Computed example of a mutant assay.
Amino acid sequence: MIFSGIVRYVGDGDGLCVGPAGRPDQWIEVRLGDFYAPELHEAGGTDAKVRLERLVMGKPLVCRAGKHSYDRVVANCTLNGRPVGQLLRARGGVEGGRGWKR
Rank of each mutant, 00 (worst) to 15 (best):
A48G: 05
G11T: 12
R82H: 06
V73D: 07
A21T: 15
T46K: 15
L79F: 07
Q86N: 03
P24M: 06
L52M: 11
G66S: 15
E53V: 14
G22A: 10
I6S: 08
R91D: 14
V56L: 02
G99F: 05
E95R: 01
H68W: 10
E29L: 01
V74R: 03
V18G: 02
D14C: 09
W27F: 04
I2W: 02
C17Q: 13
D12R: 02
P83C: 00
K59D: 01
L79W: 05
N80F: 03
G99M: 03
E95S: 01
D34R: 07
G11V: 07
D71E: 12
W27N: 02
R51S: 03
W100K: 08
V50Q: 01
K101S: 09
W100G: 00
L61C: 06
I6W: 02
L61K: 09
V10N: 10
A43Y: 04
M57W: 06
L32Y: 07
G45K: 06
A90W: 02
G96L: 02
P24A: 04
H41A: 13
K59Y: 01
A90I: 01
I28H: 09
R64C: 00
C77T: 14
E42L: 11
Y9V: 13
V18I: 15
Y36K: 14
V10W: 13
G19F: 08
V30E: 04
G15R: 14
G81D: 12
D14N: 12
L32H: 07
S69A: 12
P83I: 00
P20D: 12
L79P: 06
I2K: 14
V18S: 03
F35R: 05
Y70E: 06
R8F: 04
M57T: 11
E42F: 00
G13D: 06
M57I: 15
G81Q: 07
F35C: 12
D14V: 15
S4G: 10
V7H: 13
L55I: 11
L88K: 03
F35L: 07
G19D: 06
P20Y: 04
A65T: 09
C77Y: 12
G22P: 12
A37Y: 08
A37W: 11
E29Q: 13
A43Q: 13
G92H: 06
A37R: 05
A21G: 01
L55M: 08
G13F: 14
F35A: 05
P83K: 09
Y9G: 00
R91E: 15
R72S: 09
M57E: 00
A65Y: 10
L55H: 03
G93C: 03
G85N: 04
G13Y: 11
V62K: 07
G33R: 13
I6D: 09
R64N: 06
T46W: 14
P38C: 10
K67Q: 12
G66F: 02
N76P: 00
L52W: 02
R89C: 01
A21K: 11
Y36A: 12
I28G: 00
A21F: 05
C17Y: 13
G99H: 03
P38V: 04
G81V: 01
A90V: 04
R8P: 07
M1D: 11
G85L: 09
A48W: 08
R102H: 04
